[in-house]
Simulated assay, not measured.
Amino acid sequence: MDPVVRESLADQAANRLWARIKSGEWPVGTKLPGETTLAPQLGVGRSTMREATRQLAGRGILVARQGSGVFVHSVDEAGAEWDLVLKRADIDAVLEARLAVEGEAAELAATRRTPADIKAIQSALRLRAKRRSEISELVDADIAFHRSIVSASHNEVLQGLFDTMTPRLRSAMAEMLNMAKDFGDDHDHAIHAHVVEAICARDADRARSLTRAHLRDLMGAMRSST
Results as ranks from 00 to 15, higher is better:
28 V>A: 12
28 V>C: 07
29 G>S: 02
30 T>L: 10
30 T>Y: 07
32 L>E: 03
33 P>H: 05
35 E>T: 07
36 T>G: 04
38 L>K: 05
38 L>P: 13
38 L>T: 09
42 L>F: 15
42 L>T: 08
42 L>M: 12
44 V>D: 02
45 G>C: 07
46 R>Q: 12
46 R>G: 04
46 R>P: 04
47 S>E: 13
47 S>H: 12
48 T>V: 15
48 T>D: 11
49 M>H: 03
49 M>C: 10
49 M>N: 02
50 R>P: 07
50 R>G: 06
53 T>P: 04
54 R>I: 07
55 Q>E: 11
56 L>K: 01
57 A>Q: 11
58 G>P: 00
60 G>R: 11
60 G>A: 10
61 I>L: 02
61 I>R: 02
62 L>D: 09
63 V>L: 09
64 A>Y: 14
64 A>G: 14
66 Q>N: 06
67 G>Y: 06
67 G>W: 02
67 G>M: 06
68 S>K: 15
69 G>Y: 04
70 V>Y: 02
70 V>C: 03
70 V>S: 04
71 F>N: 01
72 V>F: 00
74 S>Q: 10
74 S>F: 00
74 S>V: 03
76 D>W: 03
76 D>C: 02
76 D>E: 15
76 D>I: 04
77 E>F: 11
77 E>M: 10
79 G>I: 08
81 E>K: 02
82 W>E: 14
83 D>I: 13
84 L>K: 02
85 V>M: 12
87 K>G: 12
87 K>A: 14
88 R>M: 06
88 R>Q: 08
88 R>F: 09
89 A>W: 02
90 D>S: 07
90 D>G: 14
94 V>P: 07
94 V>F: 09
94 V>S: 10
95 L>V: 01
95 L>Y: 01
95 L>C: 00
96 E>G: 14
98 R>N: 08
99 L>R: 13
101 V>W: 06
101 V>Q: 12
